[in-house]
Design a protein around this nucleic acid. Sequence first.
DNA 1: CGTTGACTTGAAGGTATTCAAGCTTTGTGG
DNA 2: CCACAAAGCTTGAATACCTTCAAGTCAACG
Lengths: 218, 218
Amino acid sequence: MTIHTSREFRSATPLGTGAGTGFEALLPPSSVQPATLYAAGSEIYAQGEKAGDLYQVEFGAVRVYRLLADGRRQIAAFHLAGEVFGFETGKTHHFFAETIGATGIRVIRQHAGADASRELLPLALESLVRAQEHLLVLGRQNAAERVAAFLMDMAARQGDLEEIELPMSRGDIGDYLGLTIETVSRVFSKLKEKGIVRLPSLRKVKIVKMQTLRDMSE
Amino acid sequence: MTIHTSREFRSATPLGTGAGTGFEALLPPSSVQPATLYAAGSEIYAQGEKAGDLYQVEFGAVRVYRLLADGRRQIAAFHLAGEVFGFETGKTHHFFAETIGATGIRVIRQHAGADASRELLPLALESLVRAQEHLLVLGRQNAAERVAAFLMDMAARQGDLEEIELPMSRGDIGDYLGLTIETVSRVFSKLKEKGIVRLPSLRKVKIVKMQTLRDMSE
DNA sequence: CGTTGACTTGAAGGTATTCAAGCTTTGTGG
DNA sequence: CCACAAAGCTTGAATACCTTCAAGTCAACG
């Protein structure tokens, strides 16, 4: 189902709002396609599928994950409005990608030209640094530190606002942080109890003591 | 201390042995420098330093890591002969890079040309996929599974030989797998006890039951 | 042959998980 | 718009796995 948004195809207007990554200008305009609307939980690509194209989130959010044989899931990354994902080596995807809520996605067709590489390398490196920094969180931080780091990251990606929007469930957060849903919930409760955050609704977090949270995430 | 190896500068001979990554041919020949010999434990770059160049391991091994304020360390990647590292976003390094044993390193000066990007993108993506796959290990696997995955990875990178060489200490392995040195040691002992591996020396592992180990790492 | 650093092994303790129950929010049909 | 069902979330108690602390062994090197 391809929809046409109010924004004109090839519009010079950057995608998204203040939450954008700032990389929009780097994209090769000639390969941008109209956005497609996906329902919540739609698969964009699956592990083993043929890879090649890249994707940009117009609105909504995407989770990229891997599964173990017994069903354990690790979310490697969340992608918010403006961000590009789908980078792969070789011919097939190593991961699954799914929308979280209702989400608009643009396909960026990869062409062999040198221009594309020059523009894509910074985006790939952005993902690389993000993944390597997340390794520190998963390898060496405890539950409270992980959640704090997650909240700081989400805040930074939403323009350092005090009130942040969580598009994903507690289960998704757990599978991103390498924790169970129960542990995530307990840490949220503890942060609230200590007055570090307020939880106006399940999917909203108001950060009251930003510096405390920053110190927690080290 | 810059040394000249027996291999000629700009030689067509690929670096390393059968353990190479196969990416040597992709490197821009015009930017390859003579190799430099580093003593064990030498710093190649530090967090906060100006980034820009890339590095290729000629022989030996490198660890790329990050530290928390209290000294906890997470090794994001090991790099063996033939592999390229040093990819960064922005102007400064987010990580430390150190040689493990005595190691030869070539500097690959980055120039702005499109050619370089085209050649470097696959290398960056290789690192990205490796990092994202490691997230699954750190986030969702137990100690035995982590060590099994590590050994399978090292074996694959050394040409799927039965007897593999570990250039790094137990402490390094622990900091890579998000485990303590004691836990790593205990898992090694257990694997030996079960006849899955033999340990001819501290830095050598003979994989006896390859399939069992593969199944363990899922 | 003694010293040093790296590794191994044991015992106790702590943090996150598992299992279980109850609560809250959201969506749907009457 | 309300009632109910379903899904998602929270909280508690018991358990498991890994860490911490401690001691001892092994190997390399002078």
